[in-house]
Design a protein around this nucleic acid. Structure first.
Lengths: 254, 254
DNA sequence: GAAAGAAGTTCGGCAGGCCTAATAATATAT
DNA sequence: ATATATTATTAGGCCTGCCGAACTTCTTTC
């Protein structure tokens, strides 16, 4: 009667917790999980057995706990959902981190692939669209704090207007400055314009979501610029420099 | 051990279903509930007993089912949460109705008061802010369909810019035309400017959320303009004409 | 007004998830 | 090396929420 897909919300939480503990310390002990999820040790044992049965964790009584390949994949997916939702709440709805995490932790079990996609696109759109952008979000924050304060909308519009004009002056159309992905700095965001890599690499990039039009955020760049950590569509990826070289992008100014 | 507040997600669903069935037909039979929620009759009986114990429904075996005052209040609150979330998904994230309802039905049990508030404010803000508005949302729809299509952003901005200028020309500042709430037509939205009603009425209005700054949508106006159905902060209200007369508002153009 | 049919109820069962208390294994200290 | 503390595991229970099957109570229909 084992259904192949479809973990329960609770098991997803355990998987997620294990993933995070692994990221923080070497070994995962049941105690860590029970502390993190605020459940008794007995419950952890039970969940672990369930997960082991589904071949998502390597588990033997009194032994260290690790994720199987499949388990790691699933855990990463859950974490991704969590982060996408949390980002939406924090960046778009201006909810404080703690509350955002709480609600994301519940929602991560119920949003469908399609709707998650929408959240990603929307958060992206709001941050990237010239009519949106960080100033607009700040406006929303203001709107929330001062019930329905729209008085300074005039000023806000004026600013957006001036910015748009300026952008126009600088180049005829609002073309952002173009660059290789490998030249960007942490924190910068860009839109992929073209993949100029060869077959194998470009295929791998495309599979990961790095396609023309996609918004990419650079998270970390190692000292010599070799592994470059980026975030695309909620996925954290690590690119080799030669891969990043093959990605033409245009910088999105904040 | 009875905890006064905090219904389970499942019981909220039953309450919601009963509320909707009451709105549709005269009597509520267990059968209707089981059909609507896709559960067996036995489950309905169980839930009904639970709800009766909590004094939320009037229930006696083989008898008709009704909501108590408290039950009605709670049911309305659940429905409100559902509608607020569904509206957000439909109006802002451009999710199709069916999928929006499904996710709203899950989320309604997990979003906190504060975050629900945010969803309301955000949906409002997006629809009302001169930098947002329906055209901007349409832009998001376009963005979703054509992965990351920002090419026509220039045109979009141009339009917003012109509109802003036009608004400026017509009156020095972007003051919308002012009116009494009672003069609006169904579908129109407005922002409350001032309550000029006397003590008792204004107090009731304020309690319901009709306060300066609030966005009000007119839903229905009865033939002689007497009960006027409006929506404020997700609440459906019915106002007497004399109450609506005491509300000064400025129309928000779509 | 009796019989058929529909609707509602009770009963026992099952799965998920959590708990406490008791027990077993491992790690640490003397 | 034994005693102690920590950590895991088992065992047994509780609660929610669902189900099917059997039984009861309406409601209709003839």
């Amino acid at each position: 009667m084992e259904m192949a897909k479809g973990l329960t919300a609770s098991l997803e939480d355990y998987l997620e917790a294990i993933y995070h503990i692994i990221a923080e310390k070497e070994a995962v002990r049941a105690k860590d999980i029970s502390r993190r999820l605020k459940v008794s040790g007995a419950s952890v044992t039970g969940a672990l057995r369930s997960l082991a049965e589904k071949r998502l964790v390597n588990y033997a009584p009194y032994d260290v706990i690790t994720l199987t390949a499949e388990g790691g994949r699933l855990a990463k997916e859950v974490v991704r959902r969590h982060e996408v939702l949390r980002d939406f709440f924090v960046k778009v709805l201006a909810v404080e981190e703690k509350a955002a995490n709480e609600v994301a932790c519940q929602m991560e079990h119920i949003v469908s692939k399609e709707i998650l996609e929408r959240f990603i696109q929307f958060t992206e759109f709001v941050e990237v669209c010239p009519r949106g952008g960080s100033k607009w979000i700040a406006g929303f924050g203001y709107y929330c704090d001062h019930t329905g304060a729209m008085e300074n909308c005039e000023r806000c519009l004026q600013l957006a207007l001036e910015e748009a004009r300026k952008a126009k002056r600088e180049g005829g159309h609002e073309m952002a400055r173009s660059a290789k992905l490998s030249e960007l700095k942490p924190g910068q965001r860009c839109r992929v314009v073209k993949l100029s890599a060869r077959g194998e690499t470009s295929k791998r990039l495309a599979q990961m979501g790095v396609t023309p039009g996609a918004v990419v955020e650079v998270e970390r760049v190692a000292p010599l610029g070799d592994p470059i950590d980026i975030k695309v569509k909620g996925y954290h990826l690590s690119l080799r420099k030669e891969e990043a070289l093959g990605v033409e992008a245009e910088v999105i100014e904040p």
